[in-house]
Write a protein that binds this DNA or RNA. Structure first.
Lengths: 210, 210
DNA sequence: TACTGCATGTAAGATGTTACATGATTAC
DNA sequence: GTAATCATGTAACATCTTACATGCAGTA
């Protein structure tokens, strides 16, 4: 169960209420782990009962009171343990790939519109990631991040100076790690856009099917 | 519920028993949709009850009898309908990304071994895909398939002549589609290997954490 | 004799999805 | 007044995971 751990990471980055967490799972951490508010509330309750989280009732004016959750010492220890466990391979769910193979038994051309729609969504997501990268990590705009994923990791990037970092210290580890995860998202979207070009070319090349 | 549809596609490609399907879900179709034998048996039973599948009891000598499932006319129609529905965005589950962000609250260097292990798994998977591509699609071996994912889809590939195709007909749509899905797998593995290089460089660059 | 492969299942529990429910405030 | 945002939840259902269960045949 990694939802627990995703919540721990998010609350360590910044404490917050269930509602706030649900919003973060629509962006940021949600790019790599999805959860609905129902799941989040259920798990928060269990984690509090297990002593992994501390709660603080925050009265608010003009809006309902909220319960602000933060990670307890026990929760931090649990995260540390989890980090040292090997990850078992994730279950793959690539519905579009299944559909593409299924299209052989229908009209393959009927899929073209759907594939184009997906490509647009991936382009939008890529733009969103790139905007976030410019905003939060101040990289120069054109192709700073791995134009070719095969050469990603070369250290020609311009990292913003971290406001939380003082003096000659190395830049904050948390920011660096958030950035490398974001670069993964960017590489993924670029790969998908290119592959969907390939898919479209293939769908257009082959006939109208059986 | 796309497990049903993955099963329909697999049984259309070739009829088989629950056991055989479970084996296919460990390779081939399983690269894009995972399922255990328990799930498969449960869904096969439901699909048979719904009239989407036909069953044939096949007596065997030396091993238990099996139920060979094949797709009924109704099942084929159901697949066709599904193909015309838009896909809603899949829920993302990228545990390694969560761990990488979590590493900021522990010793980031402790993750290096795990990331290296993942990179080895992705390299193995890539080799496996490439071997399958050479075997089933007879592409020449070095970098035929999208050395740079951004240029994937260029039609410089050498496709094997399909034994099922006769005369001047275009190559079989099913094979073409299986190939483009495989190319997607290859592009994905290459992207991951490159990104994990980036992750490793980042983990090594930043300090031993808090 | 023990292990692996073939072949099919049940059962319990965890997790995920969808719908419903409440109630206050602020913006249009 | 209507909708959106903030904030928290329950209930029912679907699905997935893990463990357990059976039994025969072939191989080491």
């Amino acid at each position: 169960m990694a939802l627990e751990h995703a919540i721990l990471v998010s609350l360590l980055e910044k404490p917050g209420s269930g509602y706030e967490l649900a919003r973060r799972f629509e962006r940021s951490i949600g790019y790599f782990w999805t959860a609905t508010h129902q799941q989040i509330y259920r798990v928060l309750k269990r984690m509090e009962a297990d002593g992994r989280l501390d709660v603080r009732e925050v009265p608010q004016q003009g809006r309902p009171d909220k319960k602000e959750y933060s990670v307890s010492a026990h929760g931090l220890a649990a995260l540390g343990e989890w980090l040292h466990e090997p990850i078992q391979p994730e279950s793959v769910r690539h519905e579009l790939a299944v559909k593409i193979r299924g299209a052989a038994f229908d009209d393959p051309r009927a899929l073209i519109g759907e594939v184009e729609r997906h490509q647009r969504m991936h382009r939008d997501q890529l733009d969103h990631y790139l905007a976030g990268e410019r905003r939060d990590f101040a990289v120069s705009d054109t192709r700073t991040t791995a134009s070719d994923p095969l050469t990603a990791g070369s250290d020609t990037r311009t990292t913003a100076s971290d406001p939380r970092t003082s003096g000659g210290e190395p830049p904050d580890a948390g920011r660096e790690l958030q950035h490398v995860v974001l670069r993964g998202g960017i590489a993924y979207e670029r790969m998908m856009i290119a592959w969907l070009d390939d898919v479209l070319a293939t769908l257009r090349r082959i006939g109208p099917g059986r």
